[in-house]
């Protein structure tokens, strides 16, 4: 269609026409306009509708399983009694480790690159690395974790390994969003703080990081949502697919009330649980997989939705 249209109008440019011909030309161009905008609209509706159908299908398949017991049962050989208790507990604990590793490091890197880093080859190398890491397939992080955390540092196939792996995966997302958030803060704010004698770090801690908190939070939530849904790196790290126990509780009744034993525990997570049900041939387990999938989708959509809403609000309420 594009080619036809091109040759059409090129001809018309070369030799001017009678009024009728010009009118016909305008008409055909307007028709092309209309045709394309219809195609565009239909394409978008088609794409969104397909995805909607897929999600509705998933939720409908899993609906019969989505009850209270599903969340409080361990996985089982009998599909009807299988639940996601160990999976969601595992996911939450791993998210905790991920959060603790990725957020301080990501924010620190973002602040450094945006505010401290001199413009030289050294900084360039760091920047290229961050950009590249964002595009490395997640399974490669899994191989890194398998070789490094499991077999070099001997952390084992445990929650702490999985959490660190996902933390590395999430790092570039936090870095990029921190930098964007910091960049949007006017120089005048920094200058005002310097003028009353604040040191660079005081300016960062009391002003820049606080004002860009919303933007940083957006990145953190998006990163956590991604980490929550990530399956491949966790498989290579060595998640178990059938776990009928919970990791030791982080809070204990005897002093010092906090225990870190759970870090050393074996684990499974929601996407792995879904994957393992999905790879079974029995249909009953596929229903479980659909229910687990519905839970995962709800969680990630909720998190990403919050992040996008947050960003929208920040854009709207810019004070300077």
């Amino acid at each position: 269609m594009m080619k036809e249209n091109m040759s059409n109008s090129e001809e018309s440019l070369i030799k001017p026409k009678t009024l009728e011909e010009v009118r016909a030309m305008i008409k055909s161009h307007k028709r092309n306009d209309f045709i394309f905008s219809s195609i565009g609209l239909l394409t978008i509706i088609f794409a969104l509708l397909t995805l909607l159908i897929l999600f509705v299908d998933l939720v409908m398949d899993g609906y019969p399983k989505l009850n209270y017991e599903f969340f409080t049962d361990f996985p089982s050989r009998r599909a009807a009694h299988a639940g996601i208790l160990s999976a969601w507990v595992g996911s939450s604990l791993i998210m905790l480790v991920t959060f603790v590793t990725a957020v301080p490091m990501g924010v620190a890197t973002g602040v450094y690159l945006e505010e401290y880093a001199p413009k030289n080859w050294f900084t360039d190398i760091i920047e290229i690395n961050v950009t590249n890491l964002a595009g490395v397939p997640s399974i490669i992080y899994g191989l890194l974790a398998l070789g490094l955390f499991v077999y070099t540092f001997h952390l084992g196939q445990t929650i702490v390994t999985a959490g660190l792996t996902l933390g590395l995966l999430m790092l570039p997302i936090v870095i990029v969003s921190t930098r964007e958030a910091i960049r949007s803060i006017p120089v005048a704010i920094r200058e005002a703080a310097y003028a009353v004698g604040a040191t660079k770090w005081q300016v960062m801690l009391h002003h820049v990081i606080q004002y860009s908190f919303g933007g940083i939070l957006t990145g953190i939530i998006i990163g956590m949502a991604r980490a929550l849904g990530e399956t491949a790196p966790i498989i290579t790290v060595g998640a178990l697919t059938f776990i009928a126990f919970l990791p030791p509780a982080p809070l204990t009744s005897v002093p010092p009330f906090i225990s870190f034993e759970w870090l050393q525990s074996g684990f499974t997570v929601l996407p792995i649980q879904m994957f393992s049900w999905l790879s079974r041939p029995e249909h009953a387990f596929h229903i479980n997989a659909a229910a687990a999938g519905a839970v995962i989708i709800m969680l990630t959509l909720l998190m990403n939705g919050t992040a996008i809403w947050l960003r929208y609000r920040i854009r709207k309420n810019i004070k300077w």
Binding site: L58, I222, A225, R226, L228, G229, E230, T231, A232, P271, M274, F275, L278, A289, A290, G293, I296, I297, T300, L301, M303, N304
Partner: peptide
């Protein structure tokens, strides 16, 4: 942001 395992399903 939708996890890929769901697309596998």
């Amino acid at each position: 942001g939708v996890p890929t395992v769901v697309f596998g399903y």
